[in-house]
Simulated scan of single mutants.
Amino acid sequence: MTKFFIISCLALCLAVSGCVSHKDMVYLQPSETVTDSIAKVVATQSPYRIQIYDILNIRVKALDQDAVQIFNPMGEDLLDANSDERAYFDGFTVDLHGEIRVPALGRINVLGYTTEEIEKIIEKKLLDEQFKETANIFVTVKLTGLRYTVSGEVEAPGTNTLFQDRVNIFEAIANAGEIPITGDRKDILIIRQYPEGQKIHHLDITREDVMQSPYYYIQPNDIIYVKPLPQKSWGTAETGMQTLTTIATIITLGTTTLLLIDRL
């Protein structure tokens, strides 16, 4: 009986240690430090600044649209926001020097600027060099989609492109097929590009205050890595039902073994 009790305790400890708890799977759990300050949340949402290899979509409009057609190589009627290939070939790629080359305007440095700031720079150059105020020039500059990569413990790893100005970590993961039970939601890695190189940031999406993190919104060329939980490598139970099954199997095996030993 003592041996049976020891085996049962060991089986219970093994199964419980391998079970993924409810708190490890629930998103946005309240914390004592979280506040509802909208100002604080907005303060972390700093605008994205252009980096090398970004691709910009530039559109110029005027009263005489034919006069600005050279700046719109694709033409408004041919614009297809769902075509990554067209954006790649017809967009303006930021080179290693942080510049783009615009017809009739030459090279323009855009490295470190926001899209709104680039709009003003191009508009000023057009008015200084090509047009008068009466032309009513209107310039729009956007990134040709927000491209990012998700790898690790997700249902559909790979590279995605979303045509939105802002994408948060939950939207990015949802587009990768969500995180299975064996994924670590408490330590998601964001590998982000900077002019000086790459940096790794950590996010715990089980906490409500993740929305106040400066890394809550992803940026172009981010790599999101979801680590597996130890339970996956252990090969132990992940849910309550699996835990009960594991306990029953180990106890049955242990009892059978003891009975065979006693008969010898």
Rank of each mutant, 00 (worst) to 15 (best):
M1T: 07
K3W: 04
F4T: 10
S8Q: 10
S8P: 00
G18E: 07
C19G: 00
M25H: 01
V26G: 02
Y27E: 08
S31M: 10
S31W: 01
A39W: 02
K40T: 12
V41L: 12
V42F: 09
V42K: 12
A43M: 11
A43V: 01
R49N: 07
I50H: 05
I50Q: 06
I55E: 05
L56T: 01
N57K: 09
V60D: 03
I70L: 12
F71R: 03
P73D: 10
G75W: 07
D77M: 11
N82L: 09
S83D: 15
E85P: 00
R86T: 11
A87C: 14
D90Q: 10
L96E: 14
H97Q: 14
G98K: 06
I100V: 12
I100E: 02
A104C: 04
I118L: 12
K120L: 14
I122L: 15
I122W: 06
D128Q: 14
D128R: 10
D128W: 08
E129F: 09
E129K: 12
Q130H: 05
I137Y: 08
K142Q: 14
K142I: 04
T144A: 15
L146G: 07
L146M: 15
L146N: 05
Y148G: 01
T149D: 03
G152D: 02
V154G: 01
V154K: 00
V154L: 04
G158A: 02
F163R: 14
F163V: 08
Q164N: 11
Q164L: 15
A172E: 05
A176H: 00
G177R: 00
L189N: 06
I190S: 02
I191C: 02
R192A: 09
E196D: 15
E196H: 10
G197F: 03
I200G: 00
L203M: 10
E208Y: 11
S213Q: 05
S213K: 04
P214V: 07
I224L: 08
I224Q: 03
Y225T: 02
Y225F: 15
P228K: 09
A237G: 08
Q242P: 00
T243K: 11
T245N: 12
T246K: 04
I247T: 02
A248K: 10
I250K: 05
I250A: 15
I250P: 00
I251H: 05
G254C: 07
I261Q: 14
